[in-house]
Amino acid sequence: MALLVWREFGKGIIKKLKVSPDAFMQMTLQLAYYRNQGKFCLTYEASMTRLYREGRTETVRSCTSESCDFVRSMVDPEQTREERSRLLRIACERHQDMYRDAMCGKGIDRHLFALYVVQKYLEEDSPFLKKIFPPTYLLSTSQTPLNQCEEEAKTLNAEQKLHFLSAGGGFGPVADKGYGISYVIAGEDQISFHISSKRSADNTSSKGFRDDLEKSLREMRALFA
């Protein structure tokens, strides 16, 4: 496991760019993963479905055609900063649309899983469901809420809260050859990342991913210098 507490910028700068901080982080992770592995992969991000009674989570598949276009532009030395910025905004907008859909019950993964369970119960054969289950998420991600103790924090002012910022917690990868990454957008000037991978995997390195993530964060920031 590797920990990165990033203080060169936080959501304060990202909000000025008029893009979602979470979408910005997801695009950064896509870029870091591509640098680390040299390819794109099926990516999981958890979305809350608390709008519904007993709602838990839905999947946001963060690796999209739009995110791939953006990442390719970042590794192409011929691309201009303006074009990279344009593709980033498109990718972030696409991600936000998917996140809203997931929150509002319009995601696809829980629906497909229900069909999978029914298919197993009825002992039916489905080539389609057999092909997609179980999904192999080589990059599993989730944003950790900042305030875990909201009642206790009510008595603190903004400056006092800064002294109690935590790097949060992490989780393991869901695939043997993948990464598990949790992140906390902690205030205006800090973002924390927990990066995990299995020692048995010959293609992953948590510390190596951290290095690629730091490089990607600086390159993302440079788009708006």
Rank of each mutant, 00 (worst) to 15 (best):
D97N: 10
S196W: 12
M48L: 12
F164A: 09
A32Y: 07
M27P: 00
H111W: 06
R56L: 10
A153M: 14
F164C: 07
C41G: 08
E188Y: 08
I191E: 02
T64F: 01
L31P: 12
S206V: 02
L223H: 11
A23L: 02
E188W: 05
M48R: 14
F113K: 00
E82P: 00
T57H: 09
A175N: 11
I13V: 12
K11M: 12
P135C: 02
L31H: 11
Y52F: 15
S65G: 14
S197W: 00
T57Q: 07
R110Y: 06
L88K: 01
G178Q: 05
P127N: 02
S126L: 09
K198N: 15
S85W: 01
A175H: 13
Q30T: 01
L217C: 08
P77W: 01
K120M: 02
L88F: 06
N36A: 13
E66F: 04
A114S: 14
L3R: 15
L42S: 04
S20R: 05
L4W: 13
L165E: 11
L4G: 14
D212P: 00
D189P: 09
H95L: 14
R72H: 14
D109S: 12
A222N: 13
R86G: 03
W6M: 04
K11C: 09
M74I: 11
F171Y: 11
T141Y: 10
C63H: 00
V118K: 15
S140D: 12
L122Q: 11
N157I: 01
L156Q: 05
R50T: 01
H95E: 07
R100V: 11
L115S: 10
S166Q: 03
Y44M: 12
E152N: 04
G180F: 10
Q30F: 06
C41A: 15
K154G: 03
T204P: 08
R7H: 10
G180A: 12
N157D: 14
R210G: 10
V60A: 10
F40D: 07
A167T: 08
K18R: 15
A167I: 07
E150M: 10
E214G: 13
M48D: 11
S206G: 13
E159C: 08
R110N: 14
R81L: 11
L3G: 06
S200P: 10
K39I: 06
C149W: 08
D97Y: 09
A225P: 05
L88D: 01
L162D: 05
E124S: 13
C104T: 13
P134S: 00
E214H: 08
G105V: 01
R94V: 09
M220H: 06
Y116I: 00
L165Q: 13
R100K: 14
D109I: 07
I191S: 03
E123A: 09
